[in-house]
Amino acid sequence: DELEKRVKKIARKLNLSLDQVEEWLKRNNNDELVEAVKRLKKK
């Protein structure tokens, strides 16, 4: 979905793993995208 695409884009842009992106999003209080990261990690 759109949020998952955004997460992947962030990960690529910042050259981070999904775990690192998740931490980064949590620090930025971006719950919506944190949920998207969790969905991606399950895939």
Score class of each variant (00 low, 15 high):
residue 1 D to H: 11
residue 1 D to S: 10
residue 1 D to L: 12
residue 2 E to T: 09
residue 2 E to F: 09
residue 2 E to I: 12
residue 5 K to I: 14
residue 5 K to E: 15
residue 5 K to T: 13
residue 5 K to L: 13
residue 6 R to Y: 12
residue 6 R to Q: 14
residue 6 R to W: 14
residue 8 K to A: 13
residue 8 K to R: 13
residue 9 K to G: 09
residue 9 K to D: 15
residue 11 A to E: 01
residue 11 A to V: 07
residue 11 A to F: 03
residue 12 R to V: 10
residue 15 N to Y: 04
residue 15 N to T: 03
residue 16 L to E: 03
residue 16 L to M: 15
residue 17 S to K: 04
residue 17 S to L: 10
residue 17 S to A: 06
residue 17 S to I: 08
residue 18 L to E: 03
residue 18 L to K: 00
residue 18 L to V: 03
residue 19 D to T: 08
residue 19 D to Y: 05
residue 19 D to I: 05
residue 20 Q to W: 06
residue 21 V to Y: 03
residue 21 V to H: 00
residue 21 V to M: 14
residue 21 V to W: 01
residue 22 E to A: 05
residue 22 E to M: 10
residue 22 E to W: 09
residue 22 E to P: 01
residue 23 E to T: 04
residue 24 W to Y: 13
residue 24 W to I: 11
residue 24 W to L: 13
residue 24 W to C: 15
residue 25 L to P: 00
residue 25 L to H: 00
residue 26 K to S: 11
residue 26 K to T: 11
residue 27 R to H: 11
residue 27 R to G: 13
residue 28 N to F: 13
residue 28 N to Y: 14
residue 28 N to T: 14
residue 29 N to F: 11
residue 30 N to C: 15
residue 30 N to Y: 15
residue 31 D to M: 15
residue 31 D to P: 13
residue 31 D to C: 15
residue 31 D to N: 12
residue 31 D to L: 15
residue 32 E to R: 09
residue 32 E to I: 09
residue 32 E to L: 11
residue 32 E to T: 09
residue 32 E to A: 12
residue 32 E to S: 10
residue 33 L to G: 02
residue 34 V to T: 07
residue 34 V to Y: 10
residue 34 V to Q: 07
residue 34 V to N: 05
residue 34 V to R: 08
residue 34 V to C: 06
residue 35 E to I: 05
residue 35 E to L: 07
residue 35 E to M: 06
residue 36 A to L: 08
residue 36 A to D: 01
residue 37 V to H: 02
residue 37 V to I: 12
residue 37 V to S: 03
residue 38 K to M: 01
residue 38 K to F: 00
residue 39 R to L: 03
residue 39 R to D: 05
residue 40 L to G: 02
residue 40 L to V: 09
residue 40 L to Q: 03
residue 41 K to M: 09
residue 41 K to H: 05
residue 41 K to R: 12
residue 42 K to I: 08
residue 42 K to P: 04
residue 43 K to Y: 09
residue 43 K to L: 11
